[in-house]
Design a protein around this nucleic acid. Sequence first.
DNA 1: TTGAAAGCGCTAACAC
DNA 2: GTGTTAGCGCTTTCAA
Lengths: 341, 341
Amino acid sequence: MSVTIAEIAKKVGTSTATISRALNGLPGVSTELRAKILHAAKEMDYLPNISARSLITKKTKIAAFVVEAKHANSADPFYPSILQGIQAELAKNSYHVILVGHNNEEENGQVWKIAREQKADGFIFAGPDINVATILAIKEAGYPVVLVDNSLPGTKISSISIDNLGGAFEVVEHLIEHGHKKIAFLGGASGWASTRERLDGYETALRQNGIDPSLKPLFMPATTIETGYSGMISILGGEARPTAVFAVNDAMAIGAMKAIHEAGLQVPEDIAVAGFDDVIWSAYSDPPLTTASVFKEKLGNQAGHHFLELIESPDEPPVKIEVSTQLVIRRSCGCRGDRSS
Amino acid sequence: MSVTIAEIAKKVGTSTATISRALNGLPGVSTELRAKILHAAKEMDYLPNISARSLITKKTKIAAFVVEAKHANSADPFYPSILQGIQAELAKNSYHVILVGHNNEEENGQVWKIAREQKADGFIFAGPDINVATILAIKEAGYPVVLVDNSLPGTKISSISIDNLGGAFEVVEHLIEHGHKKIAFLGGASGWASTRERLDGYETALRQNGIDPSLKPLFMPATTIETGYSGMISILGGEARPTAVFAVNDAMAIGAMKAIHEAGLQVPEDIAVAGFDDVIWSAYSDPPLTTASVFKEKLGNQAGHHFLELIESPDEPPVKIEVSTQLVIRRSCGCRGDRSS
DNA sequence: TTGAAAGCGCTAACAC
DNA sequence: GTGTTAGCGCTTTCAA
């Protein structure tokens, strides 16, 4: 039913080899024959059979996007946006993305299965909850691998991540410009790279402004509205009440604001708040949240782009890309309204 | 490098045909030979080459998920959640999903390309912005097609959608139980199925309770926080101020609450508000929003499940599944707190 | 129950 | 520049 190169060959009166060369833009076909073939192919509405091609080339033109299932579906469409960015970038080169949503232990098996069945040409791993051993082994086995929203320092694995340090620095510095000196840090688990890096930015900002970080950073087991809320309650219950809070993400910041309000205090008058991520509804929180905006789709674009580079030239040196953030100023910091700098 | 059935055949001392039969559970292999082959395959860590298999079977074990790009990435992870549900369901049968994010006109071309290149076995179309002609033609050409969060009445296309009428009915009836009689309807475009069906549920609830729908429904060109906000302003500026508002989604409801607050009125004391969808942050709005909760992953599960049925038996009669919603009561309706019924 | 052989649609050596 | 040929790894007739 579907047109094959054999049929084109018959019609044009040449061999399938020549058809293949012409269609793939390979040298060794006269200009006129090539034109004739291309014309016939278009006329016959030819499309190659991907399976047949893959069987020989060992390339499926598919990338596997691996993310822990629980993230695929979280409150803020963070990974979906990244995925969207990847998809858009890959589509330019007729690549497609298949989704792999794993639950911890499954990851290794699923990934290897896809690799060895040749269902995808390589992998893009997203998020912090990845199995390092798997990634290293897959890379070692020669498959293109790129990490997004994570990185593996000291390895040859390419990564696309957020400039956490820079973003946090900017946000905290803005708080300092408002005159705050007692700024609390509300983070996730102390072992998480994102929390560590944002803490680093926070401390750097304080230090560079000659402020002694007198308050102990508070680490929570998760970074949700709930943990922001309970974390803030414990901060408010502490001996030295801060005049500002930097939460490592918007969800926590929103939870923190709720706790502040319930304590009968005002944001930003009594305590200023700033977050990180710029999730969609942070513009509609009460008050609207000052935060560091993350270009999620851009992260995906970069990941997709580098993935294609790795496919093209597997020996491409690994890259470590940090996509910078943008400070968006709303009202929770004490400013009057929306703007970004 | 990778193990092939030829190698297994050599090791076991039989033909590739028999290996294939044994591995695929086909009849015509003695029990002991089969056991021996299965054992060898496991020992050699055999995995089939999908491309080679697809070339013959014409099945790639891939489903294409088609959604307009702008939705893939919207505020609330609605389609991502559906996708997640599909992915989880398909994974059970070793199927994978590829993503197709289109922009209107591209859709037709992209879909046909995937179909004819045999990059996927069928299609799952999500959302309202689909090209009906394309879908009909693809279905006609024999490809499995299922619609999710949309339906094509009067056609043989299977669809999985939300029980919009029932959900809206429940929400509005709850408002009525609070004693409201002047309930405004804040919707999207009047041509959209979701808005029409939710309006239907709204009107049914009024009618069944003997209330005359005196207020004209308000249709907006989009269903966002912004349109909810501006829509509510125009409702407040009208002659007859309602005592309650039913917005067709949470985003609009949140926008509406903002407008109500800015008019110096209280929710729910002056005007009660209810939405639809139960987006993640509706629990954290001010006040928390009463709404109809949509089981997004369930929608995806159903879509994935039926897709597999269509693959199995292409002549399976089409189904029209409506996944019901759940009323979740928070405070914007006038109730005291969280509960669902 | 098993094997030989053909062939899915394509690419890539190798000849000419 | 072009054609011939040999597969890629698998499934599936057809014989035995």
